[in-house]
Design a protein around this nucleic acid. Structure first.
Lengths: 204, 204, 204, 204
DNA sequence: GATGAATGAGACTTCATTCAT
DNA sequence: AATGAATGAAGTCTCATTCAT
């Protein structure tokens, strides 16, 4: 029995090692994808950055594209739940919007490298090698926009927000986040963004 | 003399043909770049779409990358002058902003395919094959943001706009345009965007 | 009849023009072949240097390779006769050798560009595009060596030259000429070469 | 410890395999370059001759041109040292000349295929694709001629050789070697060449 | 005759993926 | 598990040659 445990813990350590390796690969790939783009990044480079051999990448992932997909999955882990939780809260739409924006702000701040990649992910189906891949992003992004749209819709219905097209409004929030994170370096907090979106730039 | 004219017009026709071909190539390339991305588009495909041989592409352009650069140049022809003209007008900053947004709206509406490409163009130096290429986009985009920032700064100084960071504000306008054009299909006019930006979404 | 003559002279002038063109092409090609080598020289470049269109080259010659062959033919025109004449003279082998060397010296001096090309021409069958082409060079060169060998053989038989292998001796003379002309710039006359070959470098 | 050694020897075997492959490639390339010339030889052919895939060539070398350069380097390995050693010996210039000629004779005899290539290597800068490449040949050849010139100069100064231009005399020796090796098949030894060069062909 | 636009075969090279060790 | 040598499909680009005008 003691042996069993030993074996078990050995396996467990092995498993841990494996998971750690996996993470190292994803991290290295993310770094390179965000810096040079998906197509310009070579498997060789990912391997080198992760300090392992090219061949081993194929033990952990079936293809370059799968690495990308797994990056997206990993990053979005828990993302949806958080979003849904905000949606479900019994607070005013304005407060929901604030929480939403705050959450996204922090999320993209934590995942700045990933934000760089997003532009490539936005490409149409067929942009990446095999169809149907990199679908997580599409799914998450769709749901993200959906929730945002609902918040705005709710605000309009409750007479808090003006009667803008929710599609447009949610689009604009999306746009701001992705764009700001990809390119801006100087913006320190999300509050100005929220304020601008809420009250506009015009004085009085 | 009449013969002279005939000759002249013959030459002219040939030149016209050539220019037309050139345009066909650029159009085909733009279509494919915007649909599949720059890297996934093959020279073979561009040739096929333009109904000519692969080799001929290299008669008109020196490389795939040059095709991209020429697309950008072609599209931005006259763009800067229009932007500068708006900047120079003696109207209020709010009106300038309106004209600016209106112009960009129409521009990107006219060049929807190009708007799709923009995400790739935003990539860092070194993303494309040879350094220093595809610089037109970078230049134009920089100036575009500069002008916008100036308009907003002017508005703030004249007490018309609130004291937001002009960098942030101009960034947001940029973001909205590029994003909206790339992905949105339903938005019919720019007026709502302008209004939202000016007055915010909050009622009262 | 006067008309006939006029026509004749018109044709004749045309013919002359054509021949002149032909020569211009060959000259341009020789210049480029000798400078950059046969393979690195493009038809486009030959056309440009000869101030005519690429297409027209194919009116005068059937292929790039034929241009090379014609260059060789043109240059070697009369060469064989001169060589044979020297061989047939009733003078001593030493004098023949002198005349031979003098002739070759002047020949390669006059055709320095061609001398540069010779290295490529020495390549085996199959080096150039279609087999059996550029044969003139091979033929002339073979005969040239043959004659030289005979002169030396004659000298040996008459007890004037030492009993060296005529093959070797003739080879050395060939070598010297082609090599000296290709690379040396400073040698002013052939007399030293002849002297060296006749008496050797050793004093006494 | 014995295991360590085994591992070591395993690594060593792999390294050896790799070096062997490298040599096979160079050998195949040399064979083809010397037979058909550099430009007419295709990477495909080199791969086929070496019984491996085209792609693998680029694992061992960065380009076709590098293969050529490496061939030259490989062949000239140790060549300079030998030449310098001859130069430094305290023997008479005539003896030095003899040793020099003997050495070169044996060298080019051992590397007959390479001797064929030399004619292409003699081409001007810019003949090969990228400038600055295939420089080893140029360097070695320059030094080779320099040493030979010095030997002859020394001979003249010591009153052993006649007062010929050392430039010319060294040129002739070079010429003979490269030429003789490239084309002659029948010459059995270098002694006749040396003798001819020393004493000339003229009897008495 | 003359032009130069057009073709297309084929070259070099890259790189994701596989596989023997 | 791990390596990195090996593969081969596919991409960009070149250029001799052809051909419509």
């Amino acid at each position: 029995m003691s042996q069993k445990l030993t074996i078990k813990s050995t396996i467990s350590r092995k498993e841990k090692e494996k998971l750690k390796r996996r993470k190292t690969i994803l991290k290295s790939a993310l770094y390179l994808f965000s810096k040079k783009g998906f197509f310009k990044t070579k498997m060789e480079e990912i391997a080198k950055k992760a300090s392992l051999s090219k061949g081993l990448l194929y033990f952990y992932f079936t293809s370059k594209e799968e690495i990308l997909e797994e990056i997206v999955k990993e990053i979005y882990r828990g993302f949806m739940e958080r979003i849904e939780k905000i949606k479900a809260k019994s607070i005013s739409p304005a407060q929901k919007l604030e929480e939403f924006i705050k959450f996204e702000w922090n999320f993209y701040k934590r995942n700045k490298k990933f934000a760089n990649l997003i532009f490539e992910l936005y490409q149409e189906e067929g942009y990446f090698l095999k169809k149907g891949k990199v679908k997580t992003f599409r799914e998450v992004h769709l749901r993200e926009k959906e929730v945002l749209k609902n918040i705005i819709k709710e605000g309009i219905e409750k007479g808090i927000f003006k009667d803008y097209d929710p599609e447009l409004a949610s689009f604009i929030v999306s746009a701001i986040f992705h764009f700001v994170f990809m390119k801006s370096r100087g913006i320190k907090s999300h509050e100005e963004i929220l304020e601008l979106f809420l009250k506009g730039i015009l004085k009085k």
